[in-house]
Design a protein around this nucleic acid. Structure first.
Lengths: 128, 128
DNA sequence: CAGCATCCTAAACGATACTG
DNA sequence: CAGTATCGTTTAGGATGCTG
């Protein structure tokens, strides 16, 4: 288990409940708007930029690029450029990325399974 | 499995990769900035507003209220008001909320376990 | 105690157009 | 093909002060 030094100078184990713990930043990174969708797309293996773009409905090139750069920076996705014309760029999950696949996939599956219940609850709440 | 009607009028199973699928909204709701932290706090059982607030470092009352209202609306958290002076309000996970606890907890655990690796990768990327 | 009201900023996101 | 550049919008989130 890693540790960090908090505001009081104490050395503490990583804990998302601490306002200044780096793990909270990481948690929010992997829970952003597009990351779970990129992971879902890359579950099947290697994809090119345009393939990712069409796999993820509604994502613009700018935002997809930003998301992929962040994931690359965080060591979750690797980017391979082939010196061809036209250019070809391939994205795949790193080993670290693969380790995150199962947790993110569980959340995605929950969303798809229970979206109906949530929407029903939402309607009932709004009627009241 | 629930279904929804997409832009072409077809009836499809819930799928977060579809831009117009309601499950995507649900996914983004449960992956927002504070929801995973509220769940982590409520894992232990019932908490009052002020207890939640101090359990989640750095959250302001306004944002915590907003988050809790959304979770209540979505049927994930229940809110109980006691007619006392001073007022007492208790929050707890609903049955639906409990079903989401395990997936969210897995993501939280991943963040705490691998935050060190992510930060290391980030530093290396920024040096290059 | 548990919030609500108000104002404000930062940043994420999106639309469009263009390029090596 | 795989982006970048620029601009504009939206909205989450924060600071502060007040109330039943």
């Amino acid at each position: 288990m890693d540790t960090f030094v908090d505001q009081q100078g104490s050395e503490l184990a990583f804990n998302v409940m601490d306002q200044f713990c780096p793990s909270r930043v990481v948690l929010q990174r992997i829970g952003d708007k597009w990351t779970p969708l990129v992971f879902q797309a890359l579950k099947q293996g290697v994809l090119r930029f345009s393939e990712l773009r069409s796999a993820i409905g509604g994502v613009t090139p700018k935002v997809l690029t930003q998301t992929l750069r962040s994931l690359e920076r965080d060591g979750l996705v690797s980017r391979t450029v082939y010196a061809e014309v036209p250019p070809r760029v391939e994205y795949r999950l790193t080993e670290l990325g693969v380790s995150l696949l199962e947790p993110l996939d569980a959340v995605r599956a929950w969303a798809e399974t229970h979206a109906g219940s949530v929407l029903t609850s939402r309607d009932a709440f709004d009627d009241a």
